[in-house]
């Protein structure tokens, strides 16, 4: 089982929307049985990010974890959303 984390600043608004979108996408890709989704806020995850196979964020993250996260804001704006899904898929392989 792969672990996918979605995080925003508070864990209440944007990550909720992005989680919903990713959930549907996983279903379309037939990956929903293989991936567990987690939704959280940045502050709670700083020391645990290596536990996840892929991380999508809709907010600013500290530089030291920048390399490890996928910018999920395009899923909100629609601009560049496909590239985000591609990047997630790569990480989950």
């Amino acid at each position: 089982m792969k672990k996918l984390l979605i995080m925003c600043g508070t864990g209440v608004a944007t990550s909720t929307v992005v989680t919903g979108k990713i959930k549907e996408w996983l279903k379309e890709k037939d990956l929903d049985k293989e991936v567990t989704l987690y939704q959280s806020k940045v502050a709670d995850e700083m020391n645990k990010i290596d536990d996840y196979d892929a991380i999508v964020t809709t907010t600013v993250v500290p530089d030291k974890i920048k390399e490890k996260v996928i910018n999920g804001v395009p899923l909100l704006t629609g601009i560049g959303a496909e590239q985000v899904y591609d990047a997630i898929e790569q990480k989950l392989k």
């Binding site: 600043g9 944007t14 601009i79």
Partner: peptide
């Protein structure tokens, strides 16, 4: 405070939007 640390500005289709919020 949250807006400083986790800003919410979005620039879409040449229109700037913000969705300020905080913990429930």
């Amino acid at each position: 405070t949250r807006e400083e640390h986790f800003p919410t500005g979005l620039y879409v289709n040449h229109i700037g939007i913000a969705i300020p919020h905080t913990d429930s």
